[in-house]
């Protein structure tokens, strides 16, 4: 059974969601403030965390800041509609995806399923090892090494890098990346993929002197095979 940790200060909303997810055969536990949320995340492993940004302090952003370095658990943020700054900061801090609240619960379910599919991919498919440049990616163990050194990425970042490396040497558009990784259409001002790529770059650069991912302006990204 899938376990979901829901961190939101609206108790009734949590109860309703719990009932909704129960029908989908998912189990929801809640934390009603940031502190309880952090404790819950440290106490037990959840399949996915749904984190409301708009909470009395510590708010969702602070929770994310605290938790992300310790854990790779998939996190979906709930942001106020239009509060782009929350969205951007959240993605920068390593959230996997976001959704504006109030949201349709079916939409939330779809996002959760997309995230779960990424983390649970290894169980269903044949494990594969992809090599490109100085990076080696193993879809079975979901591990990445750069110059032989093991690096840590979140599951969404892993999937983005996997897509880029599968198409190494070719340009992959933002639309394709969004559809393949996040399982949805690219919106006009959706910077999610850019944020994920920027986070991956940061990690890669820490371990390699080569720029592996090239930005093709207004189109998308390319994993560079050989430096010209």
């Amino acid at each position: 059974m899938t376990t979901i940790l829901l961190i939101d200060d609206d108790k009734e909303f949590c109860l309703l969601l719990k009932e909704f997810f129960k029908i989908e055969d998912m189990e929801v536990t809640f934390a009603h403030d940031g502190k309880a949320g952090i404790e819950a995340m440290q106490a037990a492993r959840h399949d996915v965390v749904v984190l409301d940004i708009m909470m009395p302090p510590p708010n969702g952003i602070e929770v994310l800041k605290k938790v992300r370095p310790q854990s790779n658990v998939p996190i979906i943020m709930l942001t106020a509609r239009g509060e782009d700054i929350d969205r951007i900061v959240g993605l920068e801090l390593g959230a996997d995806d976001y959704l504006s609240k109030p949201c349709n619960p079916r939409e939330l379910l779809a996002r959760i399923r997309a995230v779960l599919r990424r983390t649970q991919l290894s169980n269903t498919e044949q494990p594969e090892v992809i090599n490109a440049g100085q990076v080696t990616l193993n879809t079975g163990t979901r591990t990445i090494t750069v110059n032989g050194k093991l690096i840590e990425l979140t599951s969404t970042q892993f999937s983005v890098l996997e897509q880029l490396m599968r198409h190494a040497g070719k340009v992959i558009t933002k639309e394709d990346l969004t559809e393949k990784v996040l399982d949805r259409k690219l919106d006009s001002f959706d910077r999610s993929i850019d944020m994920h790529v920027s986070n991956i770059r940061k990690v890669l650069n820490r371990n390699s002197e080569i720029q592996h991912i090239k930005t093709i302006r207004n189109v998308g990204y390319q994993f560079v095979l050989e430096q010209e």
Binding site: D10, E12, F13, L16, F20, K101, P102, C103, N104, P105
Partner: peptide, 13 residues
């Protein structure tokens, strides 16, 4: 927004 968020979940239920 708070009641609206609840309303959407209740509706789905």
């Amino acid at each position: 927004r708070t009641p609206l968020a609840r309303l959407l979940v209740a509706l789905e239920l």
